[in-house]
Measured scan of single mutants.
Amino acid sequence: GKMTGIVKWFNADKGFAFITPDDGSKDVFVHFSAIQNDGYKSLDEGQKVSFTIESGAKGPAAGNVTSL
């Protein structure tokens, strides 16, 4: 299901971020390909987002990341 959280930090050079979920679970890795914005895919620290949890090769990662 959809979860919500806050972007903890975003590394534009490497194209990934971490989200701190609102439910208090541990921070979730985000690859820029999961960001659903049109055009430039970036996130801002402190931004509120919704996302799903996908199981990636290196463990859980956020999918369908959308700005709220």
Score class of each variant (00 low, 15 high):
residue 29 F to S: 05
residue 49 V to Y: 02
residue 60 P to G: 04
residue 13 D to L: 10
residue 42 S to E: 10
residue 55 S to G: 13
residue 64 N to D: 14
residue 16 F to I: 15
residue 7 V to A: 00
residue 54 E to A: 02
residue 57 A to G: 13
residue 64 N to A: 07
residue 53 I to N: 07
residue 57 A to I: 15
residue 28 V to E: 02
residue 50 S to M: 10
residue 43 L to T: 02
residue 19 I to D: 00
residue 56 G to M: 07
residue 30 V to S: 00
residue 5 G to Y: 01
residue 31 H to L: 14
residue 57 A to H: 14
residue 59 G to W: 13
residue 36 Q to S: 08
residue 67 S to G: 12
residue 43 L to E: 01
residue 45 E to M: 09
residue 65 V to S: 09
residue 33 S to W: 09
residue 9 W to L: 06
residue 23 D to Q: 03
residue 24 G to W: 03
residue 21 P to Q: 02
residue 43 L to A: 02
residue 41 K to L: 13
residue 30 V to E: 00
residue 65 V to T: 11
residue 67 S to C: 15
residue 55 S to E: 14
residue 2 K to C: 14
residue 8 K to D: 01
residue 2 K to G: 08
residue 42 S to L: 12
residue 7 V to G: 00
residue 3 M to P: 03
residue 43 L to G: 01
residue 24 G to F: 03
residue 54 E to T: 04
residue 7 V to C: 04
residue 46 G to N: 05
residue 59 G to S: 06
residue 13 D to R: 04
residue 56 G to P: 14
residue 62 A to E: 13
residue 28 V to Q: 05
residue 44 D to R: 13
residue 66 T to L: 03
residue 1 G to S: 11
residue 65 V to N: 13
residue 25 S to E: 05
residue 19 I to C: 03
residue 48 K to P: 09
residue 47 Q to V: 09
residue 15 G to W: 06
residue 5 G to W: 01
residue 9 W to Y: 13
residue 50 S to Y: 12
residue 30 V to Q: 00
residue 28 V to L: 11
residue 62 A to F: 07
residue 68 L to N: 15
residue 67 S to H: 13
residue 30 V to P: 00
residue 8 K to Q: 07
residue 48 K to W: 14
residue 45 E to G: 06
residue 50 S to P: 01
residue 38 D to E: 11
residue 42 S to T: 10
residue 37 N to P: 12
residue 61 A to G: 11
residue 25 S to M: 03
residue 41 K to E: 11
residue 45 E to T: 10
residue 26 K to H: 09
residue 11 N to S: 10
residue 58 K to H: 15
residue 53 I to Y: 09
residue 13 D to K: 06
residue 26 K to I: 06
residue 29 F to V: 14
residue 35 I to G: 03
residue 68 L to A: 14
residue 12 A to R: 11
residue 6 I to N: 03
residue 16 F to E: 07
residue 47 Q to F: 07
residue 27 D to H: 04
residue 14 K to P: 01
residue 35 I to Q: 03
residue 9 W to V: 05
residue 29 F to M: 15
residue 39 G to V: 07
residue 12 A to G: 05
residue 6 I to D: 01
residue 14 K to S: 04
residue 68 L to E: 15
residue 39 G to D: 11
residue 67 S to L: 08
residue 34 A to F: 14
residue 55 S to K: 06
residue 42 S to C: 15
residue 23 D to M: 02
residue 67 S to P: 09
residue 48 K to G: 04
residue 32 F to T: 06
residue 48 K to E: 07
residue 37 N to L: 11
residue 17 A to M: 08
residue 34 A to Y: 14
residue 9 W to E: 04
residue 42 S to Y: 13
residue 28 V to A: 02
residue 51 F to L: 02
residue 39 G to E: 08
residue 41 K to M: 11
residue 27 D to P: 07
residue 34 A to M: 14
residue 23 D to Y: 04
residue 10 F to D: 01
residue 16 F to N: 02
residue 45 E to Y: 12
residue 27 D to A: 08
residue 4 T to S: 06
residue 54 E to D: 09
residue 9 W to F: 12
residue 39 G to Y: 08
residue 43 L to K: 01
residue 15 G to N: 08
residue 68 L to Q: 15
residue 38 D to P: 08
residue 3 M to Y: 08
residue 7 V to H: 01
residue 52 T to D: 11
residue 6 I to E: 03
residue 43 L to Q: 01
residue 65 V to G: 12
residue 14 K to W: 12
residue 38 D to C: 15
residue 60 P to V: 04
residue 26 K to M: 08
residue 15 G to R: 09
residue 41 K to C: 15
residue 39 G to W: 07
residue 21 P to K: 01
residue 43 L to V: 07
residue 63 G to A: 13
residue 36 Q to K: 06
residue 2 K to P: 11
residue 18 F to S: 07
residue 13 D to Y: 05
residue 40 Y to K: 07
residue 39 G to H: 11
residue 39 G to L: 08
residue 62 A to K: 07
residue 10 F to G: 02
residue 56 G to Y: 09
residue 5 G to V: 02
residue 19 I to M: 01
residue 42 S to M: 10
residue 33 S to T: 06
residue 56 G to C: 15
residue 56 G to T: 14
residue 1 G to C: 15
residue 44 D to P: 06
residue 14 K to Y: 07
residue 45 E to R: 09
residue 1 G to H: 10
residue 57 A to T: 14
residue 67 S to M: 08
residue 30 V to A: 03
residue 52 T to M: 12
residue 30 V to C: 09
residue 44 D to H: 11
residue 17 A to D: 00
residue 35 I to L: 10
residue 16 F to W: 03
residue 67 S to Y: 03
residue 37 N to F: 10
residue 65 V to A: 06
residue 56 G to F: 06
residue 55 S to W: 08
residue 19 I to L: 04
residue 15 G to T: 05
residue 50 S to I: 12
residue 44 D to G: 12
residue 22 D to N: 04
residue 11 N to L: 07
residue 4 T to M: 05
residue 7 V to M: 03
residue 26 K to W: 05
residue 34 A to P: 03
residue 40 Y to R: 05
residue 66 T to A: 07
residue 35 I to N: 02
residue 22 D to E: 06
residue 52 T to F: 09
residue 51 F to E: 00
residue 17 A to S: 01
residue 5 G to Q: 00
residue 45 E to V: 12
residue 2 K to L: 12
residue 6 I to A: 03
residue 23 D to E: 03
residue 51 F to G: 00
residue 5 G to E: 01
residue 66 T to I: 11
residue 37 N to Q: 10
residue 8 K to F: 04
residue 26 K to A: 08
residue 16 F to Q: 04
residue 3 M to K: 07
residue 31 H to K: 14
residue 12 A to Y: 08
residue 27 D to S: 08
residue 35 I to V: 07
residue 25 S to F: 04
residue 67 S to W: 04
residue 27 D to R: 03
residue 22 D to P: 01
residue 64 N to P: 07
residue 50 S to L: 09
residue 11 N to G: 04
residue 30 V to G: 00
residue 52 T to L: 13
residue 25 S to L: 03
residue 47 Q to A: 08
residue 14 K to V: 02
residue 37 N to S: 11
residue 13 D to W: 06
residue 51 F to Y: 11
residue 64 N to W: 07
residue 38 D to Q: 08
residue 59 G to I: 10
residue 26 K to E: 09
residue 40 Y to G: 12
residue 29 F to G: 02
residue 44 D to W: 14
residue 60 P to C: 14
residue 14 K to R: 08
residue 63 G to T: 12
residue 41 K to H: 13
residue 17 A to V: 13
residue 22 D to H: 04
residue 19 I to K: 00
residue 31 H to A: 14
residue 58 K to D: 15
residue 36 Q to T: 10
residue 58 K to L: 15
residue 56 G to K: 03
residue 47 Q to M: 14
residue 31 H to F: 14
residue 53 I to E: 04
residue 49 V to I: 08
residue 62 A to T: 10
residue 66 T to N: 14
residue 18 F to G: 03
residue 11 N to V: 05
residue 19 I to P: 00
residue 36 Q to N: 11
residue 28 V to G: 01
residue 30 V to L: 08
residue 32 F to N: 03
residue 59 G to T: 06
residue 62 A to N: 10
residue 19 I to W: 00
residue 13 D to V: 08
residue 52 T to C: 14
residue 33 S to M: 05
residue 7 V to D: 01
residue 64 N to C: 15
residue 37 N to C: 14
residue 3 M to N: 05
residue 57 A to Q: 10
residue 61 A to D: 14
residue 3 M to G: 06
residue 34 A to V: 09
residue 29 F to W: 11
residue 22 D to V: 04
residue 26 K to L: 06
residue 63 G to D: 12
residue 45 E to Q: 12
residue 24 G to K: 04
residue 26 K to C: 14
residue 1 G to F: 08
residue 43 L to P: 04
residue 52 T to W: 13
residue 13 D to P: 04
residue 4 T to Y: 09
residue 2 K to F: 13
residue 3 M to W: 05
residue 21 P to L: 06
residue 17 A to Q: 01
residue 41 K to F: 12
residue 57 A to R: 05
residue 48 K to S: 12
residue 66 T to K: 01
residue 46 G to T: 02
residue 65 V to P: 05
residue 51 F to P: 00
residue 41 K to I: 13
residue 61 A to M: 12
residue 16 F to D: 01
residue 45 E to F: 13
residue 48 K to Q: 10
residue 47 Q to P: 01
residue 66 T to R: 00
residue 9 W to P: 01
residue 67 S to Q: 12
residue 44 D to N: 12
residue 27 D to F: 04
residue 54 E to L: 02
residue 47 Q to T: 10
residue 4 T to L: 05
residue 34 A to C: 15
residue 37 N to K: 07
residue 2 K to I: 12
residue 53 I to W: 12
residue 36 Q to P: 07
residue 31 H to Y: 14
residue 14 K to I: 04
residue 40 Y to C: 15
residue 54 E to W: 02
residue 48 K to Y: 08
residue 48 K to R: 12
residue 62 A to G: 07
residue 33 S to D: 12
residue 48 K to I: 08
residue 64 N to V: 12
residue 22 D to S: 07
residue 34 A to N: 13
residue 60 P to N: 06
residue 29 F to Y: 13
residue 23 D to W: 03
residue 18 F to P: 00
residue 1 G to P: 09
residue 67 S to K: 02
residue 6 I to L: 04
residue 53 I to P: 08
residue 31 H to D: 14
residue 23 D to C: 07
residue 40 Y to Q: 11
residue 35 I to W: 15
residue 2 K to R: 10
residue 30 V to W: 15
residue 26 K to N: 07
residue 40 Y to F: 10
residue 29 F to H: 06
residue 9 W to M: 05
residue 17 A to T: 01
residue 10 F to Y: 13
residue 56 G to D: 15
residue 20 T to K: 10
residue 58 K to W: 14
residue 35 I to P: 02
residue 45 E to D: 05
residue 40 Y to V: 09
residue 4 T to P: 01
residue 49 V to K: 00
residue 1 G to Q: 10
residue 64 N to K: 05
residue 8 K to L: 11
residue 37 N to E: 09
residue 5 G to F: 01
residue 11 N to P: 01
residue 51 F to C: 04
residue 21 P to G: 01
residue 1 G to I: 07
residue 62 A to I: 11
residue 52 T to S: 08
residue 61 A to Q: 14
residue 61 A to I: 14
residue 27 D to I: 06
residue 63 G to M: 09
residue 1 G to M: 09
residue 35 I to K: 02
residue 50 S to G: 04
residue 47 Q to L: 08
residue 62 A to Q: 12
residue 5 G to P: 00
residue 34 A to E: 13
residue 32 F to S: 06
residue 33 S to P: 04
residue 28 V to P: 00
residue 40 Y to A: 09
residue 53 I to L: 11
residue 68 L to W: 01
residue 29 F to E: 09
residue 31 H to S: 14
residue 36 Q to C: 14
residue 48 K to T: 07
residue 5 G to M: 01
residue 47 Q to R: 07
residue 40 Y to P: 09
residue 53 I to G: 05
residue 7 V to Q: 00
residue 65 V to M: 07
residue 64 N to S: 11
residue 35 I to E: 03
residue 17 A to F: 14
residue 58 K to P: 15
residue 44 D to Y: 14
residue 38 D to H: 10
residue 54 E to P: 02
residue 61 A to L: 13
residue 22 D to R: 01
residue 12 A to W: 08
residue 15 G to M: 12
residue 29 F to I: 15
residue 62 A to H: 08
residue 40 Y to S: 09
residue 3 M to D: 02
residue 21 P to T: 04
residue 64 N to L: 13
residue 65 V to D: 14
residue 45 E to A: 13
residue 1 G to V: 10
residue 9 W to T: 04
residue 27 D to Q: 05
